[in-house]
Design a protein around this nucleic acid. Structure first.
Lengths: 222, 222
DNA sequence: CATTATTGATAGTAATACTATTATATTTGC
DNA sequence: GCAAATATAATAGTATTACTATCAATAATG
């Protein structure tokens, strides 16, 4: 995948100045990923970020008008990246069943680093999404941000997988709910598994979440 | 259910002074439910709460050491109440299948007011759980609070339903994951349905979430 | 009715989430 | 290569938040 000129585009409404347009911007993004992961979103501040990158917090504010906007940006980037992975990961299959199977694996397995995007560590970003992304959607500003299209990449992921299901069984009545349950559930299961081992099931393999949803979804739609 | 002497007990570690032990304490709880619902958790402050109940914020701090603790208290109360509903709602069935069916309905249907607990409006509390409870579990203090037993009522709900599944089909390999997916998913589906109608499916009935999970779970476990 | 516990009233503090201003680099167009 | 525009640094300042502290007033209890 190296040297492939692919670019994840994030809606212009989600930043004041495009962080991909400068060295400082990229430093802001990559260092904030590190810091949010270490400190948690609540304890993360632009002041701490400024110190970490050797710039005043006022410089950070030229890219994002709040720390929440930065999280929203990361969220949008992550789901755009997931959509790109989904498209690339299913394009070569001819049958809808194979596509669905790949999609489930892709969305439910532990993330590996993608060398294509240098300033973003996808493994850490995934941890942030698992731990913090819920704060993007569970907020009084959610409707406003929905209108700005923030959730489009997320919705598109759901729609794409949903379409595979409808191809396999056009009569299944809940394709969207089922895929939503999986996409959202995989993240929550992975969060809860790491904090409350007993909520989930014994076998502690890396594929258990994907196995669970593969079994569940194929049983549901036949 | 009136005049029944039932009491939801919340672990002593979750408050400084038991809010059920005084008029002020109950006012704090019932008014905070209203305010968090109206303002959202981020904009909710003890100062605003103090003004709303006509007491200084320092008085509120004698019951809870932070607004987060208050949310944690509400979370613990809610899941204890759900467990009580679950026990009462399944006790009269003889077959595990009937128990499971009732449990799903109970956990996935819109909440109705329970007159048993006067100072708590369960309908509004449910809205708070849907919108904000995720902030209880997605926080750097989660492991500490887990050790204090905060999540026990939630886990017990999962275990009880999981036990019904194992009775029906002892060979189903993911009973806990399946129930977790439902309990957590029902909340998230209801949140997303109210903000992003298109993520979920067309039929906008009050029973759709329960219908979806009933179909899903019974297909999964046979 | 004296002691104790509870609440009210008020003040204060450190940190947070920004905004504003001016100086200094750095880039860009010509 | 130099002026003009732009980006960043350095610093200061503000309103709000999330508490803590103190002491007086009131209510409950023995």
């Amino acid at each position: 995948m190296k040297n492939l000129q692919i670019h994840i585009t994030v809606s212009e409404d989600l930043y004041l100045k495009n962080p991909e347009s400068s060295v400082l911007g990229k430093k802001i993004v990559s260092k904030s990923i590190e810091l949010i992961d270490q400190l948690g979103f609540e304890a993360f501040t632009f002041k701490k970020l400024g110190i970490a990158i050797g710039s005043p917090e006022s410089s950070v504010y030229r890219y994002f008008d709040s720390k929440r906007s930065l999280l929203v940006y990361l969220y949008a980037w992550y789901w755009s990246w997931m959509e790109y992975r989904l498209v690339f990961g299913t394009i070569n299959h001819t049958s809808a069943k194979e596509k669905l199977k790949s999609a489930i694996t892709l969305l439910c397995s532990p993330i590996e680093t993608d060398q294509t995007f240098e300033h973003i560590d996808e493994v850490i970003l995934n941890r942030i999404i698992v731990a913090e992304s819920i704060k993007v959607s569970h907020n009084k500003t959610v409707d406003e941000q929905n209108q700005k299209g923030l959730f489009n990449p997320f919705k598109q992921v759901i729609e794409r997988v949903s379409a595979f299901i409808s191809q396999i069984n056009p009569d299944y009545p809940y394709p969207n709910m089922l895929v939503f349950a999986m996409v959202d559930g995989a993240i929550e299961q992975s969060h809860f598994a790491s904090h409350f081992p007993k909520t989930t099931d014994e076998i502690n393999s890396k594929t258990i979440i994907a196995d669970f949803y593969t079994d569940l979804i194929f049983k549901a739609i036949q």
